[in-house]
Nucleic acid binder design. Structure first.
Lengths: 183, 183
DNA sequence: ACCTGAACACCGTTCAAGT
DNA sequence: ACCTGAACACCGTTCAAGT
């Protein structure tokens, strides 16, 4: 099977989901593609480009699921879902600059939604970041949470999925309400 | 000069400020201390422990500057200041679990302040995370910002420090107001 | 108690050489 | 056009051996 960008993304996401970001090495990606590590550099400039490709993959998956009519809350829930779908995605976002195509489109969509909410141009960037970072950090915590409850199942507290959704929604509401009030 | 935990933290923070987290290697830390890399393992279990020590150093610096009478806003400004004082601190926090002593004390202080604001126990964790992560991401962006304006000084927009402070304050206010309204 | 050199099992990346 | 082995300059960590 010949190598393509799509296949590089596929195996990378698979590695991410199975073993996490520390296992996402050029050598391991190449192994899965049954080529030498050096050959990877024919398809891709460097490792950072692979990070960018994965983020682009996530962002376009999100874009495919939202329309301009969706509420900001719904969009945030979809973003969370897709971030959860690839392992260690928050660390990916932390490490690569927001310059890929789909990511920029997504950012602008969120900006539009924030404007509808009454946020002024001056506060668009802070607000967008506040929101996006809330989602990222929530996903991070959520995953840590899941690992805990999997490993030692006899933990003193019980948390259902509906509770987690409620918690996520609460944070969103805090941000939305705050933005409304300060409009 | 004999090696101590304090000296390990000192040189680590120095490396972080001069060259960033990717240059913070066991070998470089050892170099600065004029010992072999292997010797470091006599003082410290592994690299993660060094990360933890640096975070502890930051958190206790924060604790030294705040009292129970301070407003939550003031505390957040101090946290931001100290996070800015050591290079790549946000990435440090992202990578090490919140189990160090001062960090736990700090978290509980923030929880107390949030309770004063009317946040229920149920929402304490989400709210605390929302707030803390806002500060972390703000510092990250702030640093990227600074680097841009340093490198190419003829950038189309001009941003003063007072503006950045105002932006930071805006985000805090959004969170506080939102929490108040949803109380 | 404290330090060391040498080694192990890894990294990302380059490059001359092959088809 | 696409791939390779070998090498370079790094990592974190271990361990027998030294004082």
């Amino acid at each position: 099977m010949n190598i393509s960008i799509t296949r590089i993304i596929d195996v990378s996401v698979d590695i991410l989901n199975k073993d996490g970001i520390s296992s996402l090495t050029m050598r391991k990606i190449a192994d899965r593609l049954q080529i030498a590590a050096a050959s990877l550099y024919f398809h891709v400039k460097d490792k950072r480009e692979i990070y960018g490709l994965i983020i682009e993959y996530i962002c376009s998956a999100i874009l495919n699921q939202i329309t301009l009519q969706d509420t900001l809350e719904k969009i945030c829930f979809i973003i969370r879902k897709e971030y959860k779908a690839v392992g260690d995605s928050p660390q990916l976002f932390a490490v690569s600059p927001p310059i890929t195509e789909s990511r920029i489109i997504l950012i602008n969509m969120i900006f539009d939604k924030l404007r509808e909410l009454g946020v002024s141009d001056e506060h668009l960037a802070v607000s967008g970041n506040l929101l996006h970072n809330y989602i990222l950090s929530f996903v991070t915590n959520e995953k840590i949470w899941e690992n805990y409850t999997e490993e030692d199942s006899d933990i003193p507290f019980e948390v259902g999925i509906s509770d987690i959704n409620k918690q996520f929604k609460f944070g969103l509401q805090v941000i939305f309400k705050g933005l409304e009030v300060l409009r």
